[in-house]
């Protein structure tokens, strides 16, 4: 926690006494000459909702990708319940951290139920032989998977859309389905990348209720969001990133009133606005694509 702001003492329900679940230390992500994430720390405790805000191109999603192993951070380490996470998405999920995506990435031609069942993949064991021979173990596990997936769909309020193809579902439902799929991996920490993007106020309120419900069931949640009202309602703690660096970390009240945050979002008015954010996004995109091409299509 290199930031000077004392973030844990302010809010009455800041769960400072609870165990640390997720701990990222000095995460740096460089793409060529561009530093997208620069020495960011993050600590998430049990039952906490942490918000991640910042203008476009601040490196929020890149930071998420570093946490979940989609990118291998240039420097720094990520610990979950004390163990260092390898930068492999599969291992991260098995360790207990799951995520949703900014631009929804469901399995479009699978049903809602199947999508969630895929989420159970890392918690089930039946192999090819079990499947071919339909062993009792396979049948038992398959029944459990189906039951759990249905439970989760009910939990997020999609219990009646089980057999719909994901791509035929309304936008808000797709976001909720992605959350159900992430929950199916039995995570301890849930990372949500702009869960209310493109939602109307009603759907946003639903999403807020859902995230509180998830928190109350004992999970820690990290949320990236641009909707400030949403984030300041929801979060116990908020981290503001600007150009890859931590600008401030603190309670919603502290962050909200900090002049630097306002400045970062709307500029100071003297022409020293941050770089054109879209431009930074485009740069990162181009770098990532170039790297993926070099590595032969695997990110």
């Amino acid at each position: 926690m290199s930031t000077a702001v004392a973030h844990d003492t302010g809010a009455p329900d800041a769960p400072s006494g609870r165990d640390v679940l997720l701990e990222a230390r000095g995460v740096v992500m460089r793409f060529g000459g561009l530093t997208a994430v620069d020495d960011v720390d993050l600590t998430v405790r049990e039952g906490e909702i942490v918000g991640l805000i910042g203008p476009n191109g601040a490196g929020k999603t890149t930071f998420f990708n570093c946490l979940t192993g989609l990118y291998k951070p240039t420097e720094g380490e990520v610990r979950l319940s004390g163990t260092v996470l390898p930068p492999k998405p599969g291992r991260v999920v098995r360790a207990g951290m799951s995520r949703t995506f900014q631009n929804i990435r469901l399995f479009a031609n699978m049903t809602a139920l199947e999508n969630v069942m895929v989420g159970r993949y890392c918690r089930t064991k039946a192999g090819a032989f079990d499947s071919i021979l339909r062993t009792p173990r396979f049948r038992r596990e398959e029944a459990q998977t189906r039951e759990r997936a249905q439970e989760l769909l009910d939990y997020v309020g999609l219990g009646r859309s089980t057999e719909l193809l994901a791509r035929n579902m309304p936008y808000g439902d797709q976001r909720r389905l992605e959350i159900a799929r992430a929950l199916a991996t039995d995570p301890k920490v849930l990372l949500l990348d702009e869960p209310t993007a493109g939602m109307n106020p009603q759907e946003t309120a639903d999403a807020e209720r859902l995230i509180f419900k998830i928190r109350d069931s004992g999970l820690a949640v990290v949320v990236i969001e641009h909707d400030m009202r949403f984030i300041f309602n929801l979060c116990d703690r908020v981290l503001c990133l600007v150009r890859g660096k931590t600008l401030i970390e603190g309670t919603p009240g502290e962050v909200q009133s900090d002049p630097r945050v306002i400045e970062a979002y709307i500029g100071t008015g003297d022409g020293t606005e941050p770089d054109d954010p879209d431009d930074i996004d485009a740069k990162i995109e181009a770098q990532v694509e170039a790297r993926e091409a070099r590595e032969g299509g695997r990110g």
Binding site: T68, L70, P89, G90, V93, R94, S98, R99, F101, R105, L106, F107, V118, G119, Y121, C122, R181, A182, T185, G299
Partner: peptide, 8 residues
């Protein structure tokens, strides 16, 4: 990528 991120 999504499959990978879901632990497949």
């Amino acid at each position: 990528k999504a499959a990978d991120a879901m632990g497949v």
